[in-house]
Design a protein around this nucleic acid. Structure first.
Lengths: 244, 244
DNA sequence: TGCAAAAGAAATGTCAGACATTTAAACATC
DNA sequence: GATGTTTAAATGTCTGACATTTCTTTTGCA
């Protein structure tokens, strides 16, 4: 019952540590696969598996050709967003997180941005939000498109805080819960109600009225939680009926 | 100038999508490497590189032996914490995020938890916080240990909100900024000041006084930002001196 | 019969070597 | 000097072999 990790995992950890502590700088080229496999005394295949592990975490990128090789990759906010959203979505779905918990976390985080956003939002942010509200008010909009627009609206609100770290942290919370919100899209949601609240939020942000934004987000949280609850109740009734 | 991703990346994406949409269930065994390499019409090495990519994201785990193979892995909060902290730390260090921005994000997020924590914190959370405060007050404590205890204190505060999703989202914010806070540890920080605020926070949480917790966190944010500013100023003066 | 040891089978882990493809630089030709 | 060709270096892919781990099956012995 040996429980040592793979050689490829060990090597990946070794290189990852070198990147984290700064022994390898951004855009620096790693030695070639041939050299590295000699250094670590493993075959090229094993070493390549280690490099693929690092590539999967966006820690390195590879180029083919004469001057190619593996380079330490600057982790962009874009890449980090993507990873966070995937991880968060899987975490929620794989651990049976109930809607109430996810919803509570999401709005708690978003409300943390509200005061900053009320203070710093630019014309661009307000414009983006109003554009999304217009889209949401269109009658023919599909459920998917409405949901995407909803996400874009809240994304603009968060970005309005002008803090990229905050935007990154929020990406997971907002975009990963989108699938959960889809659960209730087809049943009891009132688009008018949501558009109304969104409009008021945009107004409050325009007026830089932070407390009002906070109150409105609280309203939205309550409304969303209610929808989730009613769907859950409906499901329970449905199950009972089936049992009879 | 072909720009297609590797076969291993394509295959990894294909399997990852199958997991995300639920075609592959948790703990389900994937076909053997031999079967998969036949299905995707690639060699076993290429397929293995794809599997390593997935393993790097904790999406699968592998077992050796007769009944072994690759299994869809339940992503635990623990694993997700770890990934988030690594990603956040790299994101901050690789993009030259200034202390002010990171600090602002961190405290904005933590303050989002404060009302919930004031309401729901248990004896255990309060006990953990008091224990950390005691440790922080010990004279002989090393800077690293003080910093770790500081993180543990805030972690307990966040966990007090009783929302695992929130705790997960905050893990990155709090633990990734620890290295940044170390920057200022050795210079101007007053442990007494911090212990005093921590004590007051614990008192306020005991009394379930949410607004007071919020105010105290704001104080701590201000104090920390000041420290960061003073260190930055000192550095600037130092550079100027060197130029003369 | 019962049980422990040995053999077998199936899977991943590792290695070695070959060939394909891409890319940039060096070279040659006009 | 511009342009096309060759060459070299690197990653990407394939094949086949062997090592190791782990469970199952069989065998052998008391």
């Amino acid at each position: 019952m040996k429980n040592e990790p793979d050689l490829s995992a060990q090597i990946a950890k070794s290189i990852r540590d070198a990147i984290v502590v700064g022994d390898l700088l951004i855009d620096e080229r790693l030695p070639s696969e041939a050299e590295l496999s000699e250094q670590f005394a493993v075959s090229r295949s094993t070493l390549r598996e280690a490099l693929k592990r690092l590539a999967a975490q966006s820690l390195i990128r590879t180029q083919r050709g004469a001057t190619g090789g593996a380079f330490v990759n600057r982790l962009t906010f874009e890449q980090a967003y993507g990873q966070q959203i995937t991880t968060s979505a899987l975490l929620l779905s794989m651990n049976n997180i109930d809607f109430k918990t996810a919803c509570e976390a999401r709005f708690a985080l978003e409300r943390a941005c509200a005061p900053l956003s009320a203070q710093r939002r630019t014309i661009n942010h307000l414009g983006a939000m109003l554009a999304e509200i217009d889209r949401q008010a269109q009658p023919g909009l599909s459920d998917e498109a409405f949901c995407a627009s909803d996400v874009a609206f809240h994304r603009a609100l968060v970005d309005g805080a002008g803090n990229p770290v905050l935007s990154y942290q929020l990406a997971g919370a907002i975009e990963a819960i989108e699938p959960l919100m889809n659960m209730i899209t087809f049943t009891t949601r009132s688009r008018d109600q949501i558009v109304r609240i969104h409009t008021e939020i945009a107004d409050a942000l325009t007026a830089k009225d932070a407390p009002r934004v906070d109150n409105l987000l609280a309203d939205l949280a309550t409304y969303t939680a209610q929808l989730g609850q009613s769907v859950a109740d409906a499901k329970k009734r449905c199950r009972k009926k089936q049992l009879l």
